[in-house]
Amino acid sequence: MMAFAKVCELDDLWEGEMESCQVNGQEVLLIGLDGGEIRVYQGVCPHQDILLVEGQFDGKHLICRAHQWVFDAQTGAGINPDDCRLAEYPVRIDDGAVLVDTEGVTPLFAHV
């Protein structure tokens, strides 16, 4: 059963940009990677629930505004600290629209 929901137009998300929105009650972060690929991760930092869109994104790294936790924007893996990661949502591009499936994905949190 597919549950892809439209979150924005492809044109709304340029390379090197990020946007945050709520889908089925979950905060998701949309990332426009260098090269144009799109990734969708949990919208809050695994550390303290700070909205990641309030941090920085340079096309490769995501940096939380609160404590400079750094994540690899390609994979969602934590770089520092490296024992945490961002949950990733399946994403599909359909007729110029970005669709996300939140089913079965829950945000991950660090125990630190």
Partner: peptide, 13 residues
């Protein structure tokens, strides 16, 4: 923070 966590990769904890 930038020096230690981003440049020097000191573990955040």
């Amino acid at each position: 923070q930038r020096l230690l966590l981003l440049d020097k990769r000191v573990p955040a904890q």
